[in-house]
């Protein structure tokens, strides 16, 4: 009987400790401590990853028959629906913020720029993966055309879609990357998927590909790019829709 008693005490201690876990996670100190893991990962991956480290590119035969669309798949926002009805003829991507030459660019003009095509694996934060082929304009080309100012640190991507799955506060999707990823060779604004124009479910007319990070870092339905020096004053202030809901800003793990 004594052994069972020890066992039970151990179990109760464990239960107490875990009850404490959620209290730790919601406290300020706990949040900062939990943040330390992300900071360590970000620091180490930035040390390890050189610009020439590319995400693996696959052969055409590896492309997934079913590429799962996730997040918004059919935005109901009026502005977006008008663009779809018009087949994006009136679409203009706005590039602005901390740049010398803000500009707007149409889909046809984007398609006329030198493009990059890559067949890559898309890793969702939920754990699944799909392989798809993406064609688009390297983000670098647009940033070089706009000429970012010296104090620029991040590129913020604004989107047309409002996220509203009923569980979180509805908000426009947005995302951001630092200049390391913004200027990476595989970072493209994709207008085609698997050889066809980007479908609405996958972010028509334009989505971001940041191949060395998780799926939620690759916003769909892009409306504008804004070069900034901090996230202060932008929605929740953490650099993205999911980040404002507790997810890591650096999503390389």
């Amino acid at each position: 009987m004594r052994r069972i008693a020890i066992d039970r005490r151990g179990f109760l201690l464990g239960a107490l400790a875990l009850g404490g876990c959620s209290r730790v996670a919601s406290s300020r100190v706990g949040q900062t401590s939990l943040q330390a893991g992300e900071d360590a990962t970000h620091f180490v991956q930035r040390l390890l990853l050189r610009p020439q480290n590319l995400a693996r590119e696959y052969s055409a035969s590896a492309v997934s028959a079913i590429f799962k669309p996730n997040g918004s798949t059919d935005p109901q926002d009026a502005t977006y629906k008008a663009l779809v009805a018009d087949q994006f003829a009136a679409y203009r991507l706005k590039v602005g913020g901390l740049v010398e030459h803000p500009f707007e660019i149409s889909l046809d003009e984007l398609r006329a720029l030198p493009a990059r095509t890559q067949i890559t694996r898309h890793d969702c934060v939920e754990g699944w993966s799909c392989i798809g082929q993406w064609t688009g304009v390297p983000l670098r080309a647009l940033l070089e055309r706009a000429q970012i100012k010296p104090q620029a640190r991040y590129v913020v991507f604004r989107c047309f879609d409002t996220m509203d799955d009923g569980s979180l506060t509805p908000a426009r999707y947005y995302e951001s990357v630092d200049l390391v990823d913004a200027f990476h060779a595989q970072t493209i604004l994709a207008y085609a998927m698997n050889g066809a124009p980007l479908p609405v479910a996958h972010g028509a007319p334009l989505r971001l590909r940041v191949e060395r990070q998780l799926g939620y870092k690759m916003p769909k339905y892009l409306s504008s790019l804004e070069v900034v020096d901090s996230f202060a004053g932008i929605d929740g202030g953490r650099g993205g829709y999911w980040e404002d809901n507790g997810y890591d800003w650096y999503a390389g793990l």
Partner: peptide
């Protein structure tokens, strides 16, 4: 599961901090 409720973001934070 940690946390008890479905909360992928917090689960990842615990996992990666303790992985380190």
């Amino acid at each position: 599961t940690l946390p008890a409720e479905q909360d992928l973001a917090t689960g990842r934070r615990w996992h990666f901090l303790f992985a380190w």
